[in-house]
Nucleic acid binder design. Structure first.
Lengths: 216, 216
DNA sequence: CTTGACATACCAACCGGTCGGTATTATAAA
DNA sequence: TTTATAATACCGACCGGTTGGTATGTCAAG
């Protein structure tokens, strides 16, 4: 399956990947890339090793086995990305719904074709591993719960401020927003077309605007 | 990764699986199950063989290689399921939006915990293979385009009938509906909780009702 | 006597994981 | 300050098992 060249396509701000100098971090980020590209089950430890120049002994010095390496990727790399990109911005907002809309818009604008080519690291790993491994499912679910919680809190706040129609149930909408967001990214990835992504996002934004109340 | 017992969890009406008597069909359905459970890359041909009792020679008699077997699963099994479950019902409807809502509601009701444990066969395969194989991506995208087309047509019809507010753009909403639907199923799967699925579905239905016009 | 429908035996490549060994650094007693 | 001890951080050859794929053989139907 060598249709994709593994060159530096890589996505969504290099983040700490460049900063990572110690061996453990190097392994962790290489593992994150490999898992995101091939999925966990098909991720090859030898590939990770080859990309980092680290030896197998080093890998097994820091991680007892492949599964634990996968757990570490979830808890240390993926969780951090979701938190920084989608949770933290919501907590600081004073107009929650508007900033939720802007968050979606900004995501839609900043994405390039290459960015969406590989889909959401959280979503694809969840799709693959949740059905076959409780250990993975539990750890991935924890991230989703955090994400949902942040949106629920934001929507409730908006409702209290009178910026959101009272018929909306925050718990309900929050789950739907996350689901749609991931679905949109997935749709853009499959079509390999940014307009599909923005189309999808526009649909969600229209909904949010429909249920929000302009205060001015 | 032997956390899930592979016994007859299997999902969404056995469909033709029981009817399949000829060797090629047996291989095809076993491959579908194996791929849905482990993904394409980690799907083991030996596993498929073991489950069917078919020999390796037979498999390679009907399919030139693993990739072509995967293509056949998409085009013959998955496409058929999506068409029968989500496209055909929409084409025959005379109140398109209402029947779309009912389709979602009925899906939400008929699903059991076991059904959602494994997620959507189309979505998870797309997540895995679209980024790394054009052959897979193109074939999966074709199914999505068919699905989108059916919803677009239904929404346009509804708009002509005056049952849908004119502000909504059918192309936009169609992509979003599919994305949300898959996102909901995924959310339910990760939480392993049906209420998460119905929560998510309720959010979508609320939106659809908000933009539809009651004719009576 | 050919052809399609299998069955069996086998292959190299790769898999995750283990092992014995080593170079470097931290700790602490003399 | 020197020196013995011990823990840490690797290294890379090797293991049994599995992978997708192939080459050859059988055998009934036409």
């Amino acid at each position: 399956m060598p249709e994709l060249n593994e060159s530096e396509v890589y996505w969504w701000r290099p983040l700490d990947a460049a900063v990572a100098t110690d061996t453990r971090s190097k392994i962790l980020f290489a593992a994150y890339k490999e898992i995101h590209l091939h999925g966990f089950q098909s991720a090859s430890l030898n590939n990770i090793l080859a990309h980092t120049g680290v030896s197998k002994g080093a890998l097994y010095h820091y991680f007892p086995n492949k599964t634990e390496l996968g757990y570490a990727v979830i808890e240390e790399v993926i969780a951090d990305r979701i938190f920084r990109s989608f949770i933290q911005p919501l907590q600081q907002a004073d107009d929650p719904v508007q900033s939720l809309i802007e968050l979606i818009q900004q995501a839609g604008r900043s994405f390039t074709l290459k960015d969406i080519q590989m889909g959401c690291p959280l979503g694809s790993l969840a799709q693959e591993m949740a059905p076959i491994s409780e250990g993975f499912r539990l750890r991935l679910n924890k991230i989703y719960q955090l994400w949902h919680g942040a949106i629920i809190e934001a929507l409730s706040r908006a409702q209290q401020q009178g910026r959101l129609i009272p018929q909306v149930v925050p718990e309900q909408l929050a789950v739907m927003v996350v689901a749609t967001l991931e679905g949109c990214l997935s749709a853009g990835m499959i079509a390999q077309d940014l307009t599909r992504l923005t189309q999808c996002g526009a649909g969600l934004i229209q909904y949010l605007q429909l249920i929000s109340i302009d205060k001015k």
